[in-house]
Design a binder for these strands. Sequence first.
DNA 1: TTTTAGACCATTTTT
DNA 2: TGGTCTAAAA
Length: 723
Amino acid sequence: MNNSYLLESLNTAQRKAVSAPLESQLVLAGAGSGKTKVLIHRIAWLIKNYNINPSAILAVTFTNKAANEMRQRISNLLGDDLQGIWVGTFHGIAHRLLRRHGKYANLSDNFEIIDVDDQLRIVKKIIKEMNLDDQRYIPKKILSFINSKKDSGLRASHINPGYRYDIKVKVEIYKRYSIYCQQNSVVDFSELLLRVHELFLYNKWLLEKYQEKFKYILVDEFQDTNSLQYAWLRLLSGDNNNLMAVGDDDQSIYGWRGARIDNMHSFVKDCNNITPIKLEQNYRSSSNILQAANAVIAHNEDRFNKQLTSKLAEGEKIKIYAAVDDNDEAIYIANYVKKIAAKGDKWQDIAVLYRSNAQSRLLEELLVQNSVPYRIYGGSRFFDRAEVKNVIAYLRVICFEDSNLALERIINFPPRGIGEKTVEKIRENSENTNNSMWLSLTGLLADSNTPTNIISKLEAFKELILYFREQLQQLSFTDLVKQVIIKSQIIEHYKKDNTSGITRIENLEELVNACGQFANSMTEEGVTDTKEQICEFVDHVALDNKNKTDKQQDCVQLMTMHSAKGLEFKHVFITGMEEDIFPSRPAVEENNINEERRLCYVAITRAMRYLYISYSSIRTLYGYNRNSKPSRFIKEIPEELLEHVKLTSKVSVNSKRNFKFNTKKKYKSIFKTGTKVRHPKFGDGVVAASSGSGEQEKITIKFDQSIGEKTLVLKLANLTSIY
DNA sequence: TTTTAGACCATTTTT
DNA sequence: TGGTCTAAAA
């Protein structure tokens, strides 16, 4: 049997990783070094060269996207030989284990997965119940406290609050939160992992069974694992010495979410000081770009010390543009993007990156003005939309009779006159009797103290839900969803809303499609029961919440540097390279510069051929114009790699020169007589005269005939210049 | 129950 | 600045 074909397309380091001995390995995979390729070839190698049964392999990723890609690529490489392999996200795998062995983890078999939204509702409820001041105990903060404790593997009982009263309170809330979840059979994201950890910890036979099963474990993006995930992996790996961790310490940008680069160092130690295999050959970027990336990241300490090298040519220098203000920066980008496209590259070859989402607005505005097609990544995800969640809450109530959270969400949606006090009554009764709210609701109907008008409303709601439950036997999943949307009058409700009603209805149509597709694939797998399909769907939606897919194809990609991780583009613009923007202000204050620098490294290494960096002297932030300084990261790039862009455009040159003369009178510098400006209310106009200076400066602008001339205080006028 | 006005606040995001 | 959330008013 000759398996050398699995190694042929690899370089030396990759080959070393793929064909490494069957022991734990740490692979340090630099940006663009073929990390995924190594992973899938390693899996193929295990199967082909060692005759390892695919079902003995567990491959763990962070995102569904990565898991899907991996599964796809292994299957392309091996054909159908991957029967039984486990490829999934941490959460997906944990979920699978809990559905199988829930009873050993003290979970009922119909537990529900809840999202942050539901979590927050629970926390708010508890804070109210405990009569706490929600200004002092801010629900969101408390929730992140709970989640971060869970992510470090800590239960409330594990936390010693010491003498700190507020921590005592937090821990108490955490405790009550856990009790609520247990009673309601709901499990949050972190809980999935925590439960599995405990499942294995307290059921040794089960752990041994899985240790026996998974002869080989691979983890992707290892630098992003948190303490709990690492503990989880170690537990599962046991003494098998069979864990291949692939990651890049330099690309660890999720520390704020609990990720610990430290796990990489611990891993080395825990594995008897294994020598990491370094993948340093980069196949993505030209060498100037890589040199810049290397130079920047070299400022961090305690690294594993990789040095990426490129076999590609030097390539273009990094173009750096010093903008007068953020508007000017956006104009520059919009114009440059058009130039790139005019030369023949596609819009989709271009990415514009920024540190924070707020920066996208201006860019977006100017791209629109210049008729450049673009797509913004991130933002609200499909299953997070209120209208979609509401329908799913209906499905939850229909399928899980006891789902209090879902019930509360829809009992008065669309508004049917069941007010807060009635809900309160139901909730109270439910708490006193230990029944679900659904049962309490039924109880209230029989209670002679309940006012008749309330009874009729509750009765109508009950009938509605009962009707849907009946239809579970008759209707397909898709038809049931349609019925829910129509019969519950959700459509009617959104039709009345003429601001966002139409898009909401469109989203619901999309939801119906999604349900249809899901139902089809379920049917193919032999799951034909509607109720069963819905249950699976609800889980699926919770664990794989895709970004809203925009159908538009060839467009410029706008996204944060974080969401750019793992992607690559021929042209990359890194914008807002200013102190307090990038590195961001909070990061500077909290002394998290190293992570910002890694983010910078990630951003730079996204570029294949052309990298453009821009910063500006004035930036509007929170409604104020602020002077900003170039980012320290710019200085960390060797000067010889940079090319400073000078614009030939007259206006920009002028405003820049004026700006230099008048650093204090920043307003006057931009709006000289004759400058074309735009006002949010009055539209476009031309500056006719100006008086005063600094913050007192007033300018007279000639607008469209219907408006005429206006004299405005410049500072308040909110003008933008149009070049 | 819905609308509106004022308060407040503000990185990064997956599951 | 502007988006979100809460509390008061219609």
